[in-house]
Design a protein around this nucleic acid. Structure first.
Lengths: 335, 335
DNA sequence: TTGTAGGCGTTATCAA
DNA sequence: TTGATAACGCCTACAA
């Protein structure tokens, strides 16, 4: 059995409370006793029991982060950023994978595991507007995504539509007019995909360019394989196009792979742009034009909102943050 | 305040212990009382307090997984596999990032956070043989990596040398003789990199092919950027080569990017092979020949060994598992 | 500046 | 089959 505070107290000849004071860096502990206690701690190899502390404190010091899948580069990078932001504030992150599936996303909200944490940073993609009520939970939560999903829950969004308009503007500026969209889904509502699509279409419309619905490729999930399938779908329709907007980077990379297989040159025949600025796109052939959606800012704001929520009493005001973005033009759309 | 067992007990007109029995699916609870208790639980919206249970049980039901970085695809995929394997046995995984830096790896072994978990699955890459003693910890641990790091700690290895020999054999079979190595480091000892390198060199030697030391490119970390830098290092030496063995996939992908920038064709001028079988390599241009090192088996074995360690008394026998591998030949070495 | 008493919510022991 | 009671190890009063 490992040593407890009581053991340390006994060895140091002080009370448990004093040991606690030393361990928690409380003021008002004389140097002499502090030294004695520290010596005893070292001698016994004492380590705090967190279960006991958590029980006593009524908190765990852990935050849950629920994302679709860790193996999707965007979420791996996001998780990394959240872990870093949480660490700065003394919190540990427990990662939860939902697969982007509605049922599993709903399950996260009420799971036992959730109760091991003080709050939740939730990035849902399968939930529909009708599920909004389920987000009315009795613990601190911050949403990553669109406000429309449920007012009243603080959330951090990215500038999906605006960034997509920037992408569209860029594609227009390099002379592209027939722009295929890879990765859209039938789901209605303000998903990242529909907002990005809308941003693109709005810009095209504003430029007087009509968009052919046959240029839209569907993807149920946002993976390379799904991007490849969506690209094939569009190609097999035999419609012409001179650019592809992948609703995120892995979709775009999957699409580029298919373009390569079909003998189409990027960017000469088809320009390709993505969204997320994952590391892969900086080393792909060709390198991928994309939008960096402010991952660090998103992570930082989410943790800040959540911790604020945690340390103040009562529910917050349902704050809202929109992270800044940046367009990175690379080889896949050059010229 | 949320409801406690005491509240449930009161409402159901039973004792706390009975509530506990119901919640934990103990036998010897009459259907009548069970029903009453469940009704009370539903009415009060009772949820178990894990801090209290953990304190009482002396365990947390969490396993720590320490890896270099989640944004490295191999570790994201490994983490995913470990989470799945742990879930099957009712455990939750707490991910710890070390950056692959020795100091942080040592810190993980004694960190406070580690004490929130029942055991550790540890994938060190910065530790040296001399740090072996530090691995003598008083809690259950399973190492991912080479046994030589510390006998006595159960570990799960991949067939680094054997798989590398398979890669070398394949490169030889497609007529390559001057094979550059991307990603080696000066660190002595049985690291994955040195084992893979040795496997390659052994096979070359056995085939009567002498290896030019100028063909080795160094990389301090295993990232695309480092792979690119290592490839440039070799190219800038002006030595000729007809193949590249990236000690892992991201290194190989970084190298491929540089070959492309320098106008070298893959596989016509240079064949490229990697290690890990990350998803990126299946969609890269060209797709990447690689070794699938048995990630699922590694994760499954690690969790199994750890949980076994956890549930039996005393330290285990220092078991050892070597996962099977599989060579995937793709475009980057075709012909 | 330090000590004592009581409680945090669960589980284990042992009677009943 | 169920209940009372004592841990589990720490923290927050309140006292000294």
């Amino acid at each position: 059995m490992s040593a407890t505070m009581r053991d340390v107290a006994r060895l140091a000849g002080v009370s448990v409370k004093t040991v606690s004071n030393v361990v928690n860096d409380f003021p008002y502990v004389s140097e002499r006793t502090r030294a004695r206690v520290l010596a005893a701690i070292a001698e016994l190899g004492y380590r705090m029991n967190f279960s006991a502390r958590n029980l006593s404190l009524g908190r765990t010091g852990m935050l849950a982060l629920a994302v679709p899948e860790l193996r999707l580069p965007y979420f791996a990078e996001l998780a990394d950023a959240v872990i870093a932001a949480a660490a700065e504030r003394g919190y540990t992150v427990l990662i939860e994978q939902t697969g982007g599936v509605r049922e599993r996303e709903l399950a996260v909200l009420t799971s036992d595991r959730r109760r091991m944490t003080d709050g939740l940073i939730f990035s849902p993609i399968g939930l529909r507007a009708a599920d909004g009520a389920q987000l009315d939970v009795d613990y601190p939560m911050v949403l990553l995504g669109e406000r429309a999903l449920h007012a009243g829950v603080p959330h951090v969004a990215m500038a999906n539509a605006e960034a997509a308009r920037a992408v569209a503007g860029h594609l227009l500026s390099v002379g592209r007019r027939r722009i295929a969209v890879v990765g859209s889904s039938d789901e209605p509502g303000p998903s990242a995909g529909s907002l990005r699509t809308r941003g693109l279409l709005d810009t095209l419309a504003a430029a007087g360019v009509t968009h052919d619905p046959a240029l839209v490729g569907e993807a149920l999930e946002w993976t390379r394989a799904a991007g490849a399938a969506a690209m094939r779908q569009v190609l097999d329709r035999g419609v012409e196009f001179d650019a592809v907007f992948g609703l995120n980077d892995v979709l775009a990379l999957g699409a580029m792979r298919v373009l390569y297989e079909r003998g189409l040159r990027v960017p000469q025949d088809v320009a390709v742009a993505g969204f997320d600025d994952i590391e892969d796109g900086r080393f792909s052939r060709p390198s991928l034009t994309t939008v960096e959606p402010g991952k660090a800012e998103i992570a930082g704001s989410a943790v800040a909102l959540l911790v604020e929520h945690l340390t103040t009493t009562g529910p917050g005001p349902g704050a809202s943050v929109v992270a800044g973005f940046r367009l990175h033009v690379r080889e896949s759309t050059a010229g």
